[in-house]
Nucleic acid binder design. Structure first.
Length: 472
DNA sequence: CCTGGAGTTGTCCTA
DNA sequence: TTAGGACAACTCCAG
């Protein structure tokens, strides 16, 4: 009789390389049954991230098949499905990579204690972060609430090297039944846009490491300057891969350090960006409320609009606020599933300050549209923009969407890439937006470009007044 | 416990 | 044209 298998429960760790849990399972001498469960947390994903997840699952499935293994797909409550698989296969253990966002933590805690009661070895491994949230402490006690001191504290920390992918993944004698990924219809919520969005995705472990290599070789030298210019491809683009665990932060970290030692001074800023991701997760871990309410509770009394139906909110979502930088960025997100970082700051500032709308409206829309959606980074970013978060932007810092254009899109490469109205020969990218949006939005490239729903100067003054009179 | 420095990403006005 | 200061006040963090 063969040894009891180990269930390798994949979630946001859809890779074979540098995978502590998979390596441990594969070298245990027991058969390994990889499994992905379409559980309520997957069901709750927004349209774009869910579609992107489906692509990643398909890619992982292929990689496993190439190693003589398989990815078993099940749909249902995570614990219930794991228990069924244990009953079907005689598995004695379940391994997974830890996640740190509140919903995942709650699920995983419950799964772990229930499995242990069942007499199953439930083991979680690190990998999604460089530094476990409970290991980084300020000298005054507690977790870091300000980024820079955290960076100073961790930047010299030795990070272990990545692991190679396991040479072999021992297969069981018989495989349990698997559902068919196509039946999950992961792109269904995309309506018209799935194919276009897919064409902008770079899916899987191989793409991710290729992307990292190309970034280090070609873009790191000019990273500080170019990463701020949305018309230029200056950033790494790795967020899409990091969020599904197609690459690990420590692989990126080591590549960055190597480049720094090679004299590429901009590498430090890249490493700092990785630590921003850590910072967001540490905050989410230590103060889970950051994902659903004002981190600074004083802000509960601030009179943000919470009505999603407000005309200004619709204009913002649809990229027709009449402010080109805002609209270009919103359309970029709708079409590609990503948005340049400067765009994210500008659209967030415009929604929360000029339009005085609650950051949760923006956070939820991002969660529906971003293929690199990440529960921790999204919440932290929105609260930073709104002013309600830790280490947040002060209220008088209101991005001017007009002057930002002259600073960061001087030649209008970015706005022309995404805005068709008023141009004799609109770019193909700007036209692809109209192939994706619901027809009910009733927008076309021949429309007159709208006047601002709230002009930059009017909105700025209104925001400053509201923020100044907030009474706390 | 107290002290002092610092804090991702900006804007606008003035000299 | 450009550089510097005001815009507030508070919390965090190291010493």
């Amino acid at each position: 009789m063969s040894k009891p298998p180990i269930l390798m429960w994949f979630r946001r760790d859809l890779r074979l390389g540098d995978h502590e849990a998979l390596t441990a399972a594969s070298s245990s001498g027991q058969p390994v049954i990889p499994v992905f469960i379409h559980d309520p947390l997957v069901a709750a994903l927004g349209a774009a991230p869910k579609m992107r997840l489906g692509l990643s699952i398909a890619d992982l499935s292929k990689s496993l098949a190439a190693k003589g293994s398989r990815l078993i797909l099940r749909r249902g409550d995570a614990l219930a499905e794991l228990r069924k698989l244990i009953a079907e296969t005689g598995a004695g253990a379940v391994y997974w990579s830890r996640q740190y966002d509140p919903d995942s933590v709650a699920r995983d805690k419950a799964v772990k204690s229930a499995l242990k009661e069942d007499g199953i070895a439930a083991e979680s491994f690190k990998g999604h972060l460089l530094f476990e949230p409970w290991t980084v402490q300020a000298k005054t006690g507690g977790y870091y609430k300000v980024y820079t001191p955290m960076w100073k504290a961790v930047c010299g920390t030795e990070v272990p090297s990545g692991l190679p992918a396991p040479g072999t993944i021992p297969a069981p004698d018989t495989w349990p039944r698997s559902e068919d990924l196509d039946d999950w219809q992961m792109g269904a919520a995309m309506q018209r846009g799935a194919d276009i969005l897919t064409s902008h995705c770079r899916v899987g472990e191989l793409s991710a490491s290729g992307r990292l290599g190309a970034f280090i070789a070609n873009n790191l030298r000019t990273y500080i300057k170019n990463r701020d210019i949305p018309g230029v491809q200056g950033a790494s683009g790795l967020s899409e891969n990091l969020t599904y665990g197609e690459i690990t932060p420590r692989i990126c970290w080591h590549a960055g350090w190597q480049a720094w030692r090679d004299g590429k001074s901009d590498a430090e800023v890249f490493l700092k960006e990785l630590v921003w991701r850590e910072f967001a997760y540490h905050l989410a871990y230590h103060t889970p409320r950051i994902t659903w309410q004002n981190w600074k509770e004083d802000w509960d009394s601030f009179p943000w609009n919470t009505d999603e139906c407000l005309a200004e909110v619709q204009a913002w979502k649809r990229g027709r606020t009449g402010l080109r930088f805002v609209d270009a960025a919103m359309r970029e997100m709708y079409v590609t599933g990503t948005m340049h970082n400067r765009g994210r700051m500008i659209v967030a500032s415009y929604l929360t300050k000029h339009l005085l709308c609650h950051w949760k409206i923006g956070m939820n829309w991002f969660a529906d549209c971003l293929i690199d959606w990440d529960p921790a980074s999204n919440a932290m970013g929105w609260q930073w923009s709104a002013g309600s978060g830790p280490d947040a932007s002060p209220y008088f810092r209101v991005f001017n969407p007009v002057t930002q254009l002259d600073k960061f899109d001087k030649d209008r490469t970015y706005v022309n890439r995404w805005i068709a109205e008023g141009r004799d020969t609109p770019s193909a990218t700007s036209l692809s937006f109209y192939d994706m949006i619901p027809r009910s939005w009733d927008m076309g490239p021949g429309d007159r470009y709208p006047d601002p729903v709230v002009p930059a100067d009017v909105g700025r003054q209104r925001a400053l007044d509201a923020y100044q009179n907030r009474g706390f």
